[in-house]
Design a protein around this nucleic acid. Structure first.
Lengths: 343, 343
DNA sequence: TAGTCCAATGAAAACGATTACCGTATACGA
DNA sequence: TCGTATACGGTAATCGTTTTCATTGGACTA
């Protein structure tokens, strides 16, 4: 089966390829009758111009790449959705690249995206969430970003000066802790996350700051880390509950950890929020499916994706954009937190 | 900044472009010393061949498109992950196309994928889950599938003869109902899903079949439909509980609905599984975050994605593959079901 | 020693569009 | 009737690769 080209259309419509192209792209005036004739042939053969050939010459592919650590973490599908809608509205299609947070996989994808000549790249997770990131890993990204418009979402690279769109995690974390303090809690623990990754670091810092501001005691043994999974949240909470003293409230690095914490607490016979208040982070769909529904901090996840693509689109068109765009998080109070009650 | 091409490499290495291409693709013998020389230049400029130009001539893009209804439904990220891993292992990158189940959006994407000349298409949800689908909607897909290898995942199109990979939903549903019956339940309800979509239809049919086989009464007023969301599950369960009689067990069309049902039951003061057994479907991550953990049916979601890409890959290489590949679902008993107790 | 074959390479023609540049028909005013 | 502006149409170059075909110089066989 032969692939049909503009030449075939041109021949059948008795015009030149230039005219076909003009009809296709509306780039120069074409007589009405001619246009009709050409369109008829195009329709007859269901002709669609080859985007590869077109891109080769126009230098634009209408493709963007999105690298993220784990699409099964419900935070990311929401970001993707925002990105995807904005992308489609502007004529882009998205390569979704699941890196597993593995920097080799990231490099692999970076290279693939480059050779596929995507118009832009959205980078989430992995190396951009590491508190220290090797110079090679930084360089690789910086160099690519000089060739292809790129935006870092919810992350950064030391001294790279790359464009970023992010939720203000410190502010969000402060809100969460403030909320607990206002409820009268004094013995508050922090759970979760990988200790050398920035989401954890920012939140721990904000946590300590708030505690200090309110002259509350910070117990280092109540700041526990592991990773970002449900399992991890459960294990850390269990460890917390095994101590001979226990906090009356826990702030978790994300919803996954919070869900695990809730499960551990319930298995331990505690009622939530009666005997233990728990706050999550991200406002993923999990937080409303949980019983009790989770008090958490929303990051405007959808907006994060949408605005990133919007900005990327501007970059692609050579417009200057702000280096940093910060979205304000917001506390969402649900059922997993309640005023402190003496036991 | 000039883009560098094989010509630049060739010139600098004192060879012809043909030789550069041979080094790049290892498609013909090249003298060792020449190869070294060329590779050195390639490395020096960090040259990466333009995939567009390459694809234009090779007719292969290394891109596949995946159309699915809703990436925020936790069932799909898992499918995607399976697909993505297998894809990457075979050198493909995936365009993720979120259709929202909207057939116009599907058509739009179908057309974009065609003009981008993807090597293959994975189609999930939307029109392929409709019990009746207009001839135009069928045709559009069938015609495209004659030009581009395509696999329908968990769905079908009437008389289209397209390749399909699917979980055997009828078998899975029978297992779920069988499980409840074996626990001694006799008054069982079915909840959820859009009534004209195949996931619902298959499950209701299996439900009725099992009930009949066991001479149990089927009450039409206990077969309720709405959509696939948590909210919907909650509303339907609430409606069920307002009747003056109520079932002792409920089989839900998916985990979302089941979560909603559990929430409604608990709000209604029932204990689960003590007073009400609930079974979900899909074994999404939700099922283990819920308290109690949900008894559900696993569809081997990851495998669904992985095997689909594997088969698609074979199709792309012109191999003949089975028209239908069915994965066996499996019952996963957790905490939301228990033996019937008289009240 | 002549003939054969193969490894190693280069020149040029694709692939399927866009587009710069030039050519021509028509209409219009003088 | 002629000159000229207007409105298109056509040709060919271009994008950056791969690939076919031809060429060359040995090495090997008979």
């Amino acid at each position: 089966m032969k692939t049909i080209t503009v030449y075939d259309i041109a021949k059948e419509a008795n015009v030149s390829v230039a005219t076909v192209s003009r009809v296709l792209n509306d780039t120069a005036p074409v007589k009405h009758s001619t246009r009709e004739k050409v369109n008829a042939v195009i329709k007859k053969y269901q002709f669609q111009p080859n985007a590869l050939a077109r891109s080769l010459i126009s230098k634009a592919t209408g493709m963007i790449g999105m690298i993220l650590p784990d699409i099964t973490n419900p935070f990311f599908p929401e970001v993707f959705k925002g990105a995807e809608n904005e992308a489609r509205a502007n004529g882009y299609t998205i390569f979704l690249c699941n890196s597993g947070g593995d920097y080799r996989r990231e490099s692999d994808y970076l290279s693939v995206l480059k050779e596929k000549r995507v118009d832009g790249i959205l980078f989430l997770g992995g190396r951009i969430n590491l508190s220290r990131c090797s110079p090679e890993m930084v360089n690789e990204v910086v160099e690519l970003s000089q060739q292809i418009p790129m935006i870092l979402i919810n992350g950064s690279l030391p001294k790279s000066g790359l464009h970023r769109v992010m939720a203000d995690e410190a502010a969000g974390a402060e809100m969460a802790v403030q909320h607990l303090i206002e409820l009268g809690h004094q013995e508050i623990a922090f759970i979760g996350g990988v200790d050398y990754m920035t989401p954890t670091i920012h939140k721990v810092k904000a946590f300590k700051k708030k505690m200090l501001e309110n002259r509350l005691r910070i117990r280092e043994e109540w700041i526990l880390h592991q990773d970002f999974s449900v399992k991890s949240g459960k294990e850390l909470m269990t460890r917390l509950l095994q101590g001979h003293e226990r906090p009356s409230a826990v702030f978790c690095v994300n919803d996954f950890n919070a869900v695990g914490a809730v499960k551990a607490a319930i298995e331990h016979g505690l009622t939530i929020p009666g005997e233990m208040s728990i706050v999550g982070y991200d406002d993923t769909p999990l937080s409303t499916t949980l019983i009790p529904e989770l008090t958490t901090v929303t990051q405007q996840t959808y907006e994060l994706g949408r605005q990133s693509v919007q900005l990327l689109h501007q970059m692609i068109h050579g417009e200057k954009i702000k280096k940093i765009t910060a979205l304000q998080p917001q506390l969402v109070v649900r059922q997993s937190t309640a005023p402190y009650r003496k036991r």
